[in-house]
Amino acid sequence: MQVFGKTQDNLWTLIAAPAIWGFHFLFSYFLAAYRCAPNDDIFGTRAAIAVVTVICLLLILLIARRAGREWRTYGGAYRNDQATDNARERFLEFSTLLLAALSFVAVVFETLPIFVFWDCR
C-alpha cells in the first residue's frame, strides 16, 4: 500500500481505520485489566493509553488524508455508481474516508475513561 502516491484501494484499505480502532480498544482493555489485577495506581497505564491513542489517531488521520485527497483529486463526486475503475476507486476512497471519521470518533470516545478514572475501583 502506498501512502502518499496513488493507491489501489481494496477491501483491506477499507477496513484499515476500524482495525486500528480495534487494536486501540483491545490494547486499552487488556492493559487496564492486567494492571488492575492488584488495585495499584494506574497513572502509567493511563499515560501508555494516551500515547497509543495519539499514535492511533495519527494513523487514522493519515488514512483519512490519503483517501480524502485521492477522492477529491480524481473527481470527488458523491455519485459513484458507474461501471468504471474510476467510480470503484472513488467509492472505496469515500467509504474509507467515512470509516476513518467514524474510527477517529470511536477512538476518542474510547480514550475518555482515562481522564475520568484515576484508579481501579
Binding site: 486499552s28 485489566a33 494506574i42 482515562i114 475520568v116 478514572f117
Partner: peptide, 8 residues
C-alpha cells in the same frame, strides 16, 4: 470489573 474497564 474495574470502572475504567467498564468505561471502555
Amino acid at each position: 470489573l474495574p470502572s475504567i474497564s467498564l468505561g471502555f
